[in-house]
Design a protein around this nucleic acid. Structure first.
Lengths: 253, 253
DNA sequence: TCAAAAGTGTTTGTTATACACCCATGT
DNA sequence: ACATGGGTGTATAACAAACACTTTTGA
């Protein structure tokens, strides 16, 4: 479902890895803020595995080590725009659900000098990802959150925080739908929740719970080319959700 | 319940208001990070009114205007420590529940040069506040969130975001307890939720719901000097909450 | 006809809701 | 005595959990 593709595009991660000498400011590209960076957590769903997008650092310190895709903020650029640009450069995803996660600023989290980083996170669907060919397979890849390589700096801490945040949020807000294609089956939805909450759910009960919320609209379409009875396809009805939310409804799985 | 007190201590807000000339960096105190600040949202409960702590700027630009209490981060200081220090300097509250809210960084949010600010928020109880005498009544005050003065920079945006965040969070996390004194009655708790959720709750059912969570420990004390049967006092048991949370328990009112 | 997943029904225990009721205390 | 809030009991309805079951489809 999620695959890495090979192109001739190069990720510019060199900015993040440049290191100055001991007593002078380390080298930065022109026109960016000093001491402040952005790191993105990009989650995707591959079948029933929750995956995160990592890049392999190409030059400078920590070469060859895995890291969250991030970079510097331009002087005249708003934070979310910077996160969005960096995400787009790395994955080709142009309009994701992208929200600020948390700012990490331990004094010595970055070796060369003090850098505070603002973490953003995005949930992308296989659909969105199919549009993209923004990075080389040798430099980036999707990793099962249960089988991660070791990461640079405090990126493990950021990722752990992001996963916990996602697990919390997915129980109380219908963000899970972002990880699925526009049209999906109830089993796909269930598997998504099982992957993120990391537990098995009862099929009949899950179906009833979801359908009772009336948040799904029937596409009146069936799955194609499956070696079993074709399931009905549904889409998430954002308008109904907004209406119910205003009436005090709270989503919960 | 919440009162401002007068002392001879001066709030040093001058750092935030120093402005350089057009073509050179504006003046900062020594040993602080450039381009990054902290602003605190401090909420308190006065009867059934939610209040926020604001300071009146004393010098520099925007003199006499109301603002969130904030300041600069020391070079060797972690973010939360800086927020905590600033809060303590301004209010005397030493160990509040203080958590990161969001980072605000619009390009032109601060007039002199680009400054990104990390907003923290805290909920303080009348008890905590009674311990403090950290600011002068002419320079700081509690404001009903429905009757706010106009605020400098993007502080209205930060405050609006914080209030919305609080209203959301209070439904799914037991943060409401932070607004009450350490020992409280079930009716106080119920009235807190009735005020914030803006609806009447059934007394017996509310009691059962709360007690079933086992989050309150009995103080084995009664109210004093009340013109009716004295109610039992309870305190919130943080350890039990943390244990239950790890087991997948979710608080909901 | 079999595997795989779709989809339904039913039983049982738990929880929410509404509301009636008694208890303790100061004036 | 009575007003005020503290605190309990209970019938009913709604819901969740567990699991057995039937249906549809492609290979």
């Amino acid at each position: 479902m999620i695959k890495t593709t090979t192109t001739n595009k190069t990720i510019k991660v060199s900015e993040v890895t440049s290191v100055g000498t001991a007593n002078e400011p380390f080298e930065l590209p022109d026109g960016v803020l000093r001491g402040l960076s952005i790191d993105n957590l990009i989650f995707g769903l591959d079948g029933s595995e929750l995956k995160v997008l990592l890049i392999k650092r190409g030059e400078g310190i920590k070469t060859g080590e895995w890291a969250l895709p991030g970079g510097w903020i331009n002087n005249n650029e708003n934070l979310r725009d910077a996160a969005s640009r960096l995400l787009s450069d790395l994955t080709g995803v142009e309009h994701p659900y992208l929200s600020q996660l948390k700012t990490f600023g331990k004094v010595s989290r970055f070796p060369a000098e003090r850098v505070v980083t603002i973490a953003y996170y995005a949930l992308v669907s296989a659909d969105d990802y199919a549009l993209t060919a923004g990075f080389s397979a040798s430099e980036a890849g999707w990793f099962d959150i249960h089988h991660l390589p070791s990461l640079v700096f405090d990126h493990h801490e950021i990722l752990d925080y992001g996963i916990k945040h996602l697990q919390q949020e997915i129980r109380h807000h219908p963000v899970g739908f972002k990880l699925l294609p526009e049209k999906f089956t109830l089993l796909q939805l269930q598997e998504l929740y099982e992957a993120i909450l990391d537990k098995k759910l009862d099929k009949p009960n899950f179906r009833r719970k979801i359908m009772k919320m009336k948040l799904l609209s029937d596409c009146n379409e069936k799955q194609q080319s499956v070696a079993h009875r074709a399931a009905n396809l549904y889409r998430f009805d954002k308008k109904v959700y907004q209406r119910l939310t205003q009436q005090g409804f709270t989503f919960e799985v």
